[in-house]
Nucleic acid binder design. Structure first.
Length: 293
DNA sequence: TCGATTTGACCGGT
DNA sequence: ACCGGTCAAATCGA
């Protein structure tokens, strides 16, 4: 039975989500403008501008995720669809303690998605690399799968799918999953730091500043070598990370016990981990407090 | 030679 | 069993 207070809270929650969604959209627009500006006129904006917009965007989307965690329904706002639901947290927790296997693909349900319909194939300013194409049922045209070119160099987790949806007039639907964390357009600051002379050259440093950054980028390691290592330590692996990615290892109590060496690593995945910790720790009241509701 | 693309295989979810 | 998403070997091309 809902009390009056509950109803008011729901109303506030809805308003908050609407406001944040608007902010999110504006940040997206601003990011595109900055990108276009830099493409058209060279790098004329301050080098930290894109980084700053991305931080704002991330704050909005993280907050939306927190708010959505308290409700079951994902919000659909104009042509921008934010795909989230409260089961995601549970799924993510499960995925963190199961062994990494090929084919464990929960991306669509766990990461925010944005759709864009355009008459032509657009250059969005990012470097994409095609990694697959598929004919889907009830579709006339192939669906093309792209990942960020800097996936392994910088651990950028952004992907997109492009599919023609209409012949005449031509219409292409691009669905973006996740935000770029790479510095392919601007390079405001190097996130890589040289290891200290005494440090393990294959170790990874994770910095817990205002934004979480993994500061060491290394080539992927082979699946078999990883599995052998995991078997040796009787550990589970963060399944949400693909085979070539950095891996946080949890013990049976789900405490972080190790980070696998010789793997590439990325900002976004670390954020996923931190988000999980945050969501587990935060009550929705704290979110309202922080926004002054 | 090396990075990008193609394409069949693989895998988990439903 | 089917389907969507990804992997990775083969191939392409600058």
């Amino acid at each position: 039975m809902k009390t009056m207070e509950d109803h008011l809270l729901c109303l506030d929650l809805k308003k908050a989500k609407e406001e944040i969604t608007r902010g999110c959209e504006s940040a997206h627009e601003l990011l595109e403008i900055v990108h276009k500006w830099n493409c058209d006129k060279g790098s004329t904006t301050p080098p930290f501008a894109v980084d700053l917009v991305r931080k704002i965007l991330r704050s909005f989307t993280d907050t939306l995720m927190l708010l959505n965690t308290s409700k079951h329904e994902a919000e659909e706002v104009s042509d921008v669809k934010v795909i989230l639901n409260s089961e995601d947290l549970e799924e993510r927790c499960k995925s963190l303690i199961t062994k990494n296997r090929r084919g464990t693909y929960k991306r669509k349900r766990t990461i925010q998605a944005w759709e864009k319909d355009t008459p032509t194939l657009i250059d969005d300013g990012y470097a994409w690399r095609k990694y697959g194409q598929k004919m889907t049922v009830n579709a006339k045209y192939l669906r093309n799968y792209y990942r960020c070119t800097h996936k392994y160099e910088q651990g950028c987790q952004a992907i997109k799918q492009v599919q023609r949806i209409q012949e005449k007039p031509p219409l292409h639907r691009t669905t973006y999953y996740g935000h770029h964390t790479c510095n392919n357009l601007l390079n405001p600051e190097m996130i890589l730091e040289p290891s200290s002379p005494n440090s393990d050259p294959n170790s990874i440093l994770i910095s817990f500043n205002d934004t979480v950054q993994c500061k060491k980028v290394l080539p992927p390691i082979k699946r078999k070598a990883k599995e052998e290592m995991l078997d040796h330590h009787h550990m589970a692996i963060d399944q949400s990370l693909s085979s070539s990615y950095p891996e946080v290892i949890f013990d049976s109590s789900n405490h972080v016990t190790a980070v696998l060496s010789s793997t590439a690593t990325m900002e976004s995945n670390c954020e996923d981990l931190i988000s999980r910790v945050m969501i587990e720790s935060f009550e929705i009241d704290h979110v309202f407090d922080s926004f002054g509701f």
